[in-house]
Nucleic acid binder design. Sequence first.
RNA 1: GGUGGGGUACCGAAGCGGUCAAACGGGGCAGACUGUAACUCUGCUGGCUCAGCCUUCGAAGGUUCGAAUCCUUCCCCCACCA
Length: 400
Amino acid sequence: MTIDQQLELLTARHVDLFSGDELKKKLEIAAKEGRGLRIKYGADPSAPDIHLGHVVGLNKLREFQDAGHTVVFIIGDFTGMIGDPSGKSATRPALSKEQVLENAESYKKQVFKILDPEKTEVRFNSEWLGEMRFEDVIRLSAHVTVAQLLARDDFSKRYADNRPISLVEFLYPLVQAYDSVMVEADVELGGTDQLFNLLLGRELQKIYGQHPQVVMTLPLIEGLDGVQKMSKSLNNYVGVNEASKEMFGKLMSVSDELMWKYFLYILCRPPEEIDAMRARVSSGELHPRAVKDELGRCIVDRFVGEGEGAKAAEEFARVFAERKLPTDMTELALEGEIGLIDLVVKAGFAGSNGEARRLIQQGGVRLDDVQNKDIKAVIPPVDGMILRVGKRKFARLSLS
RNA sequence: GGUGGGGUACCGAAGCGGUCAAACGGGGCAGACUGUAACUCUGCUGGCUCAGCCUUCGAAGGUUCGAAUCCUUCCCCCACCA
């Protein structure tokens, strides 16, 4: 592959790039010296769930790896251990060393569904940050002014609105930038919200006498609600470790408009192909459901395993389109007569009796597909009876 | 150090002596509809032995027949001016 071809491939789908020329130069030098570039990517260890939002960046990293470059995957365990007060109400609990390591393991397992372990260097930033003395921290801080930090969009907005900005948050970009110095990153990748931090990495590298990293941002894709960016705290995400059934179902709930983005950024389908599909949908030749079905299948295949997508799709059609029972469901052993409320609670479908009562009164509870709205009902035990709550919760009753 | 503003249910936010288990919005759940776990519409959303009772409005005391609302002390948060 020529440098130009590589450049084109590697810069596909980006939002910001500083700069294409620099990247080209770096690629040329690396090629001449017969080595790969170091591509940095940072991850927060407090929430060890990789979701499709992360996949956008991970895909890009994989492309770099396939072109012969090395990914430096930084787990921000240091910040995890101090706890991050950025969310104003609930200060995140500081994680213990064991927790951090445990999370890191789970992280790796997920990340390597996408990345090539052979070409990934996993680093913990406590490795260098934990060593620093306060003096070192002050020296580091001396390189940056408050005005520079306030240039960051969300800082300046909050400052103008008299909303709090914690000093830790202020320091955070600096820490991240320092990571770039420590791993001697050639390129750093991140979501568009990371732009400021990534750019600061460049500044700091220059100060430390290194060549500034190339900065590339990728879009933050919207989550299941179609409006807010996919994130764990908003609970609008699809995790790469989820069960196929969940994964497929969640993807089917995505809006028709958003699915195109998923095709592009998660499955990396070429834009021409997507445009062609789009055209066929708007002409009525192709049903949007079929497209979304394909999206679900491919994503499940990729993250759960080849062939799992088709199974999940079948199961989904069975339960939601044909309204039939799922193939497997939890078993609930009963010993004798049981009140309907108790039954729903015992099955784990309601957190309290009150909630069970509500579900029953609202017609959300069915026994063998017959709605039962009687909160006082007592169910005689029937082996194999199916309890259904809402659209998605099923249990098979059995006698013991 | 000074001034001012706050701490209310999962989150945001009203309420400022009884009609408060606490408006409203978001989120969540259920129902109808649907290609869909989308959209929209409707309802529900502290607990219980549920037409009643119990525990909740930063914490502890107090005033009152009655307190999220008034008083005292304490704890915590934020902004601004120095």
